[in-house]
Amino acid sequence: MIIDEIKDFKDFGKVISYLSQIAPFLCMINMMPANINEIKKMGCQEYSLQTRKIMPKKLYKYFPNTIEEKTKANYSIQALRDNTVYMQTPNNFDDVYDSDINIDFEKYQKLRLIEYCSRCGIEVDKTLSMQEIGNIFLNVIYTSFKNFNDSRNAFIQKPDSEIKQLSNELFCTRLEINLRENNNDLGIAIGKTIFDEFNEFNDRLKNTFRVTCFATTPYSQLMWGGAYADCHRGFCLEYEILPNEEKYQEIYQNLYPMIYCKIRPDITERLIKIQDERMNKEALWNIYFHGALRKSIDWAFQNEWRLLLPMEKNQEASKYCMPFFPITKVYLGNRMPPIKRKEIIDICNEKNIPYIGVKRKSNVFEMEDCAIKCEECFKYKNDLHK
């Protein structure tokens, strides 16, 4: 029996990791086991509908309360004062797989060559190897250079959209640059051009949306103890979810629980079809479902919910700050210095937001609320005036 084999495991993470090894279809959503194959069948609308039913009444966000070196701004204080959350690009998250769309380069290269052959009026056998298809395309481009001293004449099929026309132009321009940089070796130049497209496409997919993350408890030692809350020196904000209020509908409908699983999906073929098309709702959901909402089951302890919003790159930083649900409580970190603690308390009093300190339990390895308020604590008052 499975239970007999895992009865010695004391750590939740080890239990989940073990189960995922023997049942790779297992996933965790909001701390509940699910079948990833069943989740895949849902689609955006059904997944959203089902997850509204299990959304917590409160969500929490941990803040380090530190000054950002580059901008010299304290975005933690800003989030408390303005009741906003900052929509981040996932490129700098602590999980290297986070929001990374799994596109296989070898498969991408072959599919892209098939597409370009089609635009040159050649329908190739898809069972051919990538090398064979590459040679067919190379010969077409070589003939165009030989007869017209240009690669553009190879693309004889009239594009069915302006985007595809621009895509052809961009390919030819990149090819000319790579030819000059690679001693006019056409094979190397084509390969380098496809690789450049691959990197650009990956970057574009990641910058299609922005994200901010939430927890479901204010007592997570792992969240308090890491960079999220500067090793207990930061604070945690509690938000009340108001599903029926009209002004919060956009953020409410774009909140999703993370899917923690073992296997990374390969959606190369599905995404490459929309590379030269305008982003639609189905394509965006593929990016969300297979990337931004998918993490290794090793992270299941975080039980994370995410706000995902389609956002353009290179906007002013202020435009990435989104108004969020009302703040209903502030939890002060166990190691927060007295001066910073006073600053947060003053803001809470000014905005009429309840607050409480978080301390260690004496008999178990857990965090809990302080029994008294900071202003009534002798230690706090004494440390504040040192």
Rank of each mutant, 00 (worst) to 15 (best):
C348D: 09
T127Y: 06
C377E: 13
K192T: 08
V358W: 07
D230L: 02
K58T: 11
K381P: 02
C117S: 12
G43Q: 07
L186V: 04
F301A: 10
K40E: 14
Q157D: 09
R119F: 13
N83T: 14
T71H: 07
G225S: 04
I156T: 14
Y75N: 02
N65T: 07
R341V: 03
F25D: 11
R306L: 10
I263M: 05
C374H: 07
D266G: 07
E181C: 09
N286V: 00
Q78H: 12
K373R: 10
T328I: 12
D383N: 14
Q78V: 08
K192I: 10
I39F: 01
N182M: 08
T143C: 07
F195L: 11
F105C: 01
D8T: 02
L49Q: 15
I259N: 12
A229M: 10
I353M: 06
T328P: 08
T51D: 06
Y62S: 10
R174L: 12
E269R: 05
Y97G: 06
Q131R: 12
Y75D: 03
K41D: 03
N199C: 03
K359R: 13
P33R: 08
E197Q: 11
Q165K: 15
P337H: 02
F93L: 11
S318K: 10
P354W: 11
D98L: 04
K110D: 04
C377K: 04
P310G: 04
I274F: 02
C213A: 14
S129D: 08
C44A: 13
P337Q: 02
I67D: 14
G43Y: 03
N280Y: 07
L271V: 03
K361S: 14
E375C: 10
L384Q: 05
D266L: 07
G225K: 03
I267Y: 00
Y97T: 06
N314T: 06
A23R: 01
N178P: 02
A292Y: 05
E38N: 13
L293C: 09
I6H: 07
Y97K: 09
L284D: 01
L309T: 07
I251G: 00
I263F: 01
S362W: 05
T66F: 09
E68Q: 15
L175I: 04
N92P: 01
T71D: 14
R52Y: 13
F235W: 10
T51C: 14
C321W: 02
L309R: 09
G291Q: 03
P218R: 10
A227T: 12
Y18C: 02
F145V: 03
K58I: 12
D203C: 00
C236E: 09
E176Y: 07
K72G: 05
